[in-house]
């Protein structure tokens, strides 16, 4: 059982509060993604879990063990770094064996573990090479193999795919998903890429200026963004937020804004009851659909519509939000 319990973690560098009391419960074998823009504190949180940074206050538990004050070497975690950090002076074999050697594991067991993880990452033919002889993707594989070889309680990954080119990233993403699902290791993964987060995570923790706005599974995060911030961060284009629109007859008490995703509109070319006219400003044809930027009562509105609809720039379109998709947010930007 390796759960991770993070309680009231605070951290500041000088005057900047990087983490403002973060609490998170990660379940055994769960794949958690910390998602947010740069500077939101996600990497700091990961490094605190690893023990590379020390929190100002708060508690970290791995399983039942309080590791808050332990150095990284005593936490039984493994980490994959953004720039891979494959030791240049060691062969791939010795890189993967590094953590096991530190644990004084027997040579037989080392050989077995190294070969097994190398096979898992499809790098068994590279074991005698040095990192200088490897491509970026191969280094990435070595870094993951090195982390898995020590059979850690917790696997930490800091933007591991961000240095790969787009195509390789897609391939590694699906491979990582399979490997990690199989290894059943509790994983915390940091990224700023929402697609990566959506596709990999069991649960996503969306971070905003040192706080966790929402911690839930990807579908829930997409459908019911807990805050205006989450709705605006997830989805491309993001959720629309409209202040006191004419559709607010169904609005609950205290509702300030209507949140509605661009694809959640009923669209008509003619005026109908309950529909409002919007003026189309730009049209982007994306093949599977068209993405419109339009204006409703002086507020910007992004809409995705079927690609067959004959719309024109400057033209008028009639809209109604699907009632079951409407979300209401209060003054503080929180969902009602």
């Amino acid at each position: 059982m390796t759960t991770i319990t993070i309680e009231n973690i605070k951290k500041s560098f000088g005057d900047a509060d990087i983490l403002k009391s973060v609490t998170l419960d990660i379940k055994d074998q769960e794949f958690t993604v910390l998602l947010g823009p740069s500077g939101c504190g996600k990497s700091t949180l990961l490094r605190i879990i690893a023990g590379l940074e020390t929190q100002d206050s708060g508690v970290i538990k791995i399983g039942e063990r309080d590791v808050s004050a332990l150095p990284p070497r005593d936490r039984n975690v493994a980490m994959v770094f953004q720039n891979y950090a494959v030791f240049p002076h060691l062969t791939v074999f010795e890189n993967i064996a590094f953590g096991l050697r530190m644990k004084k594991v027997s040579d037989d067991k080392i050989k077995h573990n190294v070969e097994r993880t190398a096979e898992l990452m499809h790098i068994e033919h590279l074991l005698s090479r040095y990192s200088g002889q490897l491509s970026g993707g191969q280094r990435q594989r070595v870094a993951v193999a090195r982390a898995l070889a020590v059979e850690p309680d917790v696997l930490l990954m800091d933007e591991p795919l961000s240095n790969l080119d787009a195509l390789l990233r897609l391939q590694m993403r699906s491979e990582l998903k399979n490997v990690l699902e199989e290894s059943k290791t509790t994983t915390v993964y940091v990224t700023h890429d929402q697609v990566e987060a959506m596709s990999l995570a069991d649960r996503i923790a969306v971070m905003n200026e040192g706080r966790i706005d929402q911690y839930d599974n990807p579908d829930e995060i997409y459908r019911n963004p807990a805050t205006e911030y989450v709705g605006g961060f997830i989805g491309n284009p993001p959720m629309n937020f409209l202040t006191s629109p004419h559709w607010s007859n169904s609005a609950p008490d205290g509702a300030q804004k209507l949140g509605i995703r661009p694809e959640d509109f009923l669209v008509s070319m003619e005026d109908q009851v309950g529909y409002l006219p919007v003026q189309i400003q730009t049209i982007e044809k994306l093949g599977s659909h068209q993405q419109l930027t339009s204006e409703l009562e002086g507020q910007g509105l992004r809409i995705n519509i079927a690609s067959e609809l004959p719309v024109q720039q400057g033209g008028i379109l009639f809209l109604q939000p699907k009632p079951e998709k409407m979300r209401w947010y209060d003054v503080r930007g929180e969902i009602i």
Partner: peptide, 14 residues
């Protein structure tokens, strides 16, 4: 790169 050292710490080095 400092990450090389950090990687070593995480992998069990003081």
């Amino acid at each position: 790169p400092v990450e090389l050292e950090e990687a070593a710490w995480v992998l069990g080095c003081n």
